[in-house]
Design a protein around this nucleic acid. Structure first.
Ligand SMILES: Cc1cc2nc3c(=O)[nH]c(=O)nc-3n(C[C@H](O)[C@H](O)[C@H](O)COP(=O)(O)OP(=O)(O)OC[C@H]3O[C@@H](n4cnc5c(N)ncnc54)[C@H](O)[C@@H]3O)c2cc1C
Length: 471
DNA sequence: TCTCTTGTTGGCTGG
DNA sequence: CCCAGCCAACAAGAG
């Protein structure tokens, strides 16, 4: 009587969720028996230290997902090794009809998937972005290189895609073989700031979008708060989106919903939605890499190979309080706001003229949401690399920016304890104090600026100008 | 194919 | 005090 289920493998990657996961679509009239598999690939995790905050978040997410699947009577099959060896074995042992995975356009994934696709029927599904790269094309069917036209074309498709929610789904069962205890070998410190679970991601989204009376934070105040360093004016959903604990199209769907019902917040909500569009934009850029000629700028640029200054930047000892606060927050919390990322990146690439790839690499080591699409995209944009990037003369002044986005110096005092005793005008410019005052404030250990801002600005302008002339 | 408009996030200067 | 003009060009994309 009971219909035999269709057996599929769910190769879990950046889609660690049960809610709105296209991989789990069942549109046939018999049950789907899903065998969830996660492969810990040493070549991927080996790039990072054992205490890496993002890996920790990933393993915690996996534990949480496993608990959710156990509630449904199943269990994740966790393996350690090379996916192209492991996946085919499980595939044939389980007798699956296909292996499903979320499409990931990064270079590593594409190479890996091509290889595995030759060994098993690999069905790659959408879900990483709101709108797939191949669905946002210019009139002449080319990939967009700049954001604004991409965004215009993206908008309607995003409304359409996200309106297809929720999907009516057929019955799904999970297999319960395999031994998840291997997870115990990996990092498990709990991160209080970013608890790794689907439910946490949903809670964050809802509270960010909620329309409480006289709110001081959240979507309703997004535009005025998003750049403030002394507040958390954004959703902090980035790590959850990074590992797919929440579906981007569901996020956008809820945001569109708020938009439709509350036209008075149109400007705030659409600004926030545009950030999700940036996320899609950078993913699409990676998907369409083959359509972009290589930009030689990065290779030819006379980046300064100043390892000492690079280290000062990394460890928050540049002598510019706002930059140092940012770099210390990054290393301790693994999350910094978009404004903070821009300031840090601009300082490294413009003021210090150090290769953006050094900075991007450091970010990837320390960001809990570190993601090659957005990270490379952000760094290139700031460094002025590629079409649509910031013009070369757009150089942030850390003092001006600090006064604007950390007006009372609270952010600096929180992250740079050497300066915690300084009153407002000095907290952003401690070099204005006399030696005696520096001693009195017990801030002797705090360094003097490693570059002169005006000289550095002139140097950046001439260097960028010169390269333009020679390429 | 040609033409026209435009491009996330800034800072400094001189009137 | 404010703010227009400038720091350069150029490629992307619409029509
Ligand atoms: C130099 C640099 C490096 C960056 N590196 C990363 C990275 O490694 N991983 C990452 O997720 N984002 C990165 N960003 C983009 C952005 O800074 C973060 O996504 C954002 O600060 C995350 O905070 P939030 O979730 O509170 O954002 P919100 O403002 O609440 O935005 C919601 C979501 O939209 C997406 N988003 C927002 N801004 C951007 C953007 N500029 N580009 C792409 N997606 C965006 C994120 O997924 C974010 O979670 C980088 C930006 C710069 C300038």
């Amino acid at each position: 009587m009971a219909q035999s289920p269709k057996k599929v493998i769910w190769w879990i990657r950046r889609d660690m969720r049960l809610i709105d996961n296209p991989v789990l679509t069942n549109d046939i009239d018999r049950p789907l028996l899903v065998c969830p598999v996660f492969v810990i690939d040493p070549t991927l995790i080996g790039k990072y230290s054992a205490h890496n905050i993002r890996l920790e978040f990933m393993f915690n997410s996996l534990r949480s997902l496993n608990a959710d699947i156990e509630n449904e009577g199943g269990r994740i099959n966790i393996h350690y090794g090379n996916p192209h060896e492991i996946i085919p074995v499980i595939y044939s042992e389980f007798g699956a009809s296909e292996v499903r995975a979320q499409y990931d356009p990064s270079q590593v994934s594409r190479i890996r998937d091509t290889k595995i696709g030759k060994l098993v029927p690999l069905k790659l599904t959408s879900g990483l972005s709101v709108v797939g790269a191949s669905d946002v094309r210019s009139q002449s069917d080319k990939a967009y290189k700049i954001f604004t036209p991409f965004y215009k074309s993206w908008w309607n498709k995003a409304i359409y895609n996200s309106s297809k929610l929720p999907k009516i789904n057929g019955e799904i069962q999970f297999t319960n073989f395999g031994d998840p205890s291997i997870l115990n070998k990996f990092l498990s410190n709990s991160n209080k700031q970013f608890p790794a679970s689907e439910i946490e991601a949903q809670t964050r989204l809802n509270s960010f979008l909620s329309l409480t009376k006289s709110p001081t934070l959240g979507m309703v105040k997004y535009k005025s708060n998003k750049d403030r360093l002394d507040k958390i004016g954004t959703s902090q959903l980035s790590p959850y989106l990074r590992f797919g604990l929440i579906s981007p199209r569901l996020v956008v769907n809820k945001a569109f919903d708020v938009l439709t019902r509350n036209p008075e917040f149109t400007s705030e909500v659409s600004t926030w939605i545009s950030e999700l569009a940036w996320r899609d934009f950078y993913i699409a850029k990676a998907s369409n890499m083959h359509e972009f000629e290589d930009v030689n700028f990065t290779e030819y640029f006379p980046w300064r190979l100043d390892f000492e200054q690079y280290q000062s930047w990394c460890f928050g000892k540049t002598g510019y309080p706002i930059i140092d606060a940012i770099m210390r927050q990054l290393r301790i919390e693994g999350w910094i706001s978009n404004r903070a990322r821009m300031l840090a990146a601009s300082f490294l690439t413009k003021q210090l003229l150090i290769d953006w790839r050094w900075g991007a690499n450091w970010f990837m080591q320390h960001l809990i949401d570190g993601d090659s699409f957005a990270n490379d995209g952000g760094w290139k944009w700031i460094a002025g690399v590629g079409a649509g990037a910031a013009p070369f003369f757009r150089i942030f002044n850390p003092i001006v920016q600090a006064k604007k986005y950390d007006p009372n110096g609270e952010y600096v005092r929180r992250w740079v304890p050497e300066l915690s005793g300084l009153p407002s005008p000095y907290v952003h410019e401690p070099w204005l104090l006399t030696n005696g005052q520096r001693l009195d404030n017990k801030m002797n250990g705090y360094p003097l600026p490693i570059v002169d801002l005006h000289e550095a600005r002139d140097r950046a302008l001439t260097t960028y100008k010169k390269l333009r002339a020679t390429t």
